[in-house]
Structures are given as C-alpha cells and as structure tokens.
C-alpha cells in the first residue's frame, strides 16, 4: 500500500480543515483523541489533537500558531515551526485538507 501524497510545504496563510471523510473525537477507552476514517484508526497525542481541534477551515496556520503561543504562555519560537511541521505531515497523510 502506498498512496501518492501531494507532499508540499504549506504557507502560513493557508486554512486547513479536517478531511471531511474523517471523524475526530475523544475516546475514553484510549484516554486520547482519535481519528476514525474508512479503513483506519489513529490515536493522537496531546499536541496533535490540540492542533487538529483548531483546524476549522477558517483560521490560518499562522493564526493557530499564534493562538497556541498565547494560550500556553510561551515565547518558544519552536511552536510556530512545530505547528507548521505537524500540519505538513497531517496534510501529506490526508488528515487535513487546505
């Protein structure tokens, strides 16, 4: 199995949202957020679910990064690159669409 993902860099202006084929929710038995979709289940770690939960197709990647920075009261410049990197991976995997 190998699906050909259109891997590419995303700009901070892009507005990602959850792939409409996917379902994102809290799952008690895993004590985590999960993504459910045809043929698959993915368990998300805390930061992944915090980011995915904000991808509403309206907010841009830059906005989401700024929000997280404010919320977690950190000056960590890594947050921005971290968010961007995660979005690119999630986009390549087809979890997010822009």
């Amino acid at each position: 199995m190998s699906d050909v993902a259109e891997d590419r860099q995303l700009s901070g202006k892009e507005q990602p949202r959850l792939n409409p084929l996917f379902m994102f929710r809290w799952e008690e038995s895993q004590n985590a957020h999960v993504l459910l979709y045809p043929e698959g289940v993915v368990k998300l770690n805390g930061s992944a679910s915090t980011i995915i939960g904000r991808c509403d197709g309206v907010k841009s990647i830059d906005q989401i990064a700024a929000e997280l920075k404010a919320e977690f009261v950190t000056d960590d410049a890594d947050i921005e690159s971290g968010v961007r990197q995660f979005m690119e991976v999630a986009h390549a995997k087809g979890w997010l669409v822009v």
């Binding site: 895993q30 698959g40 289940v41």
Partner: peptide
C-alpha cells in the same frame, strides 16, 4: 483480512475492529 488497512493504534489487547 485486509493488508491494506492501516493501524496506527496498537491494539493494547482491544478488539478495535
């Protein structure tokens, strides 16, 4: 039996499917 399915969750002994 489906080789194509992707399992990113290890079962931890649960019948996920």
């Amino acid at each position: 039996p489906k080789d194509g399915s992707s399992f990113s969750l290890d079962g931890q002994g649960k019948p996920l499917w």
